[in-house]
């Protein structure tokens, strides 16, 4: 069980958080303009990266805030944490 540093509350057990999958998949502004293929890309298709992944977490048993985490999914090592809307770090 890894530790996640919530940008609002500090370091906490992973079990206090809920994972939200791949980050920076923006909801299309004009969904009706998209083809079924393009919509499926948004809805279902994921990079599912082995290695450095930018992902979303929610401090569901804490402040309930969503934020971003950079984690190496091959060993669960967390590289960086940043708030929603902040520029992703270069890693």
């Amino acid at each position: 069980m890894f530790l996640i540093t919530c940008p609002f509350c500090g370091e906490r057990e992973q079990s206090e958080f809920k994972a939200g999958g791949e980050a920076h998949i923006e909801r299309p502004k004009q969904p009706t303009e998209l083809s079924d293929d393009e919509w499926a890309e948004y809805l279902f298709m994921r990079k599912n990266i082995k290695g450095i992944q930018f992902e979303r977490w929610n401090h569901s048993h804490g402040c309930r805030k969503w934020f971003n985490v950079v984690r190496d999914t091959s060993n669960d090592e967390i590289k960086s944490v940043y708030k929603m809307g902040e520029k992703p770090p270069t890693i």
Partner: peptide
């Protein structure tokens, strides 16, 4: 579990999470 890794090699994305 590594399907997406292989898919990425072929330039595909799959609707999977590992």
């Amino acid at each position: 579990g590594h399907s997406s890794v292989l898919a990425n090699m072929a330039g595909l994305r799959l609707p999977l999470e590992s």
